[in-house]
Design a protein around this nucleic acid. Structure first.
Lengths: 339, 339
DNA sequence: CAAGGTTTTGCAAACGTATGCAATGCCGGG
DNA sequence: CCCGGCATTGCATACGTTTGCAAAACCTTG
């Protein structure tokens, strides 16, 4: 209501300097004498002036906005990642324009278009894939892309994941060491690199020890499917005495489903998950799980994208971060072998 | 790499029209003959032109960006709200610039400044309060603000909440009808309107029936505090046979804590939560709870903020949306009275 | 004190779009 | 055939900033 927009010109007039001087005072790299800096700052705060990011973005071509495309927010892992990314980027003066693409691939294309309209400086995709065509378009527009918690084999694009193959191996080694002999696997979606890699590591370690899993079912990262898969396994001729589930979110559903049948965890069947979301530590689940170090992953992601923003031809990199297996009640270390 | 930026001028040249014509074709309200529309669209798609939102924002003063300030993302309710808001606003051509303010009030001030720098068209705060000074500044800048899931008594500012007082009342009526006589309450943070209102409704209904709660403790929306509070109640001379917990997130912690003591739910102590987040339906908790209709709340919020954006002097409104009590295993309808 | 170098400063031209204004084109009705 | 009215178009300007360039001011050194 008062004075709607106060511009750098207003400040300049009040401080008795040119408009460029005001601009330079508010531009980190620019030169201005201590005298004018003070005059300008005084005038600016008196008038309540703040530089207009839109105008700045238009001329510099840098918006200091980073687009985040995230698939599903019902798996607790992603809100956490979102929060971490938001904080880390804010600390560097960047901000997150958030899109949810619960749906399909064409939706992503559309979103990337929207993001480019906003002249975002970079794009982070959390657990959503990018078609090659799309990454090419981003590259052409000079927009760096980093995939969070998803790799892409074919194309040259930065990605940050946990060490999923190693993680799957850890789960297998742990279960075998605990004496399990009938081991099932409800995998993460096989259309995703995380799902595939964890499965590969898991099955590889089993095979290396001469073991064969009783069942392998794709849980599609879906509670319902995972729960049903667990029951299918238990109803079979060879019910497993341990199940490795592709992520915690599904593991909770599996535990719910087994308990509904009166199956005791871990006594009848042990469960291991993946992620170590906060709920895994809740007493109702007390889930043994392979931790994804979300903080380290977030840090790597922000460093990577900022590096690519400041130096446009920094090479794309893939970063894998190892995480420990966290032992809890759903799969104890010294499980007595089932008789 | 190819042609970095393709502008409306390039399109104009190729289509053989003026730059203004191109602009008008891409501006919804403007007039252009079918002939030029076609020519321009052809040239535009041939060149891969898309209007630069930054430039557009600068001149119109409208960025089509809405700032979202959200407090904590570990309570599942907020990711859900975020997802809903994001989708609803995207459908209207708006986008969300997301800030997390896990911390304190001064942080919010800073964030609002950042948002104003970006010329956001509106601000939605999810469960975070705004000082009067701050709302005044937004009003002065002509930026509408809508509070999601939080009310503010003193100041004239739009807010969307569920019917928290009524919800608290429902919880009380339900527990009394089920025959409980020793009823405790672990409230939501009393510094928040939601926490206060639910408590007010709950205690009011108890009092109206001549009942006095055994305990009332502020759970601060914190798992640890809530769990400890529950144990404190059970260790007291008058352990409650039912507890109303200020939100689901704390209720889960309470259930974990009680079970760790071997207390059976609902047989020894019934539990009611608030929110009806997805996890409340998970078998491990199976929580009776008062639903917050997040979809309706999201819809009301977007409608409200868009209305205030299009008509700057639309009045601030407060919307309360009623939600049902969802009966599940943690507090059944026909609880036998404890002897 | 003069000369040379360095910093500071103002001017003006961008950045890519929207839009008021006047001019042009088109249409039907008389 | 002419004229009034209306839709369409181009011209030019504005939005609020950054930044190259050259002039001006300052500091250092001999």
């Amino acid at each position: 209501m008062a004075q709607d927009k106060v511009t750098s010109l207003d400040v300049a007039k009040r401080a008795g300097v040119s408009q460029s001087a005001v601009s330079r005072v508010f531009t980190p790299g620019a030169s201005a004498s201590p005298k004018t800096v003070e005059k300008v700052k005084a005038a600016a705060s008196a008038l309540g002036y703040r530089p207009n990011m839109m105008a700045r973005a238009m001329i510099t071509g840098k918006s200091r906005i980073i687009g985040l495309i995230v698939a599903y927010l019902d798996n607790q892992f992603y809100p956490l990642a979102l929060e971490g990314l938001s904080n880390a980027l804010q600390a560097q003066g960047y901000h997150l324009l958030v899109f949810t693409a619960s749906n399909a691939q064409d939706r992503v294309t559309e979103i990337v278009q929207d993001l480019m309209d906003y002249q975002v400086d970079g794009i982070i995709t959390a657990s959503v894939g990018m078609s090659n065509d799309l990454t090419a378009r981003c590259a052409a527009a000079g927009i760096p892309v980093v995939m969070f918690n998803r790799g892409q084999d074919e194309t040259e694009i930065s990605a940050v994941t946990s060490a999923n193959v190693a993680g799957g191996r850890k789960a297998a080694d742990f279960l075998m060491a605990a004496g399990h002999r009938h081991i099932g696997h409800i995998s993460g979606w096989q259309g995703s690199s995380t799902g595939r890699d964890r499965q590969r590591g898991f099955l590889g370690a089993l095979a290396a020890a001469g073991h064969v899993p009783t069942h392998v079912i794709d849980g599609m990262y879906d509670r319902q499917i995972a729960g049903d898969a667990a029951l299918t396994m238990m109803d079979s001729a060879t019910p497993p005495d341990a199940i490795f589930v592709g992520n915690d979110h599904m593991a909770f559903a599996v535990m719910d489903a087994l308990r509904s049948r009166g199956i005791r965890i871990p006594d009848d069947t042990a469960i291991i998950g993946y992620d170590d979301v906060p709920a895994a530590a809740w007493a109702a689940y007390d889930l043994t799980t392979v931790r994804q170090p979300v903080n380290q992953m977030v840090q790597a992601t922000t460093e990577l994208i900022l590096a690519q923003i400041t130096d446009p031809d920094a090479p794309a990199r893939r970063i894998e971060i190892d995480g420990p297996l966290i032992t809890r009640g759903s799969a104890p270390q010294n499980q007595r072998t089932k008789t």
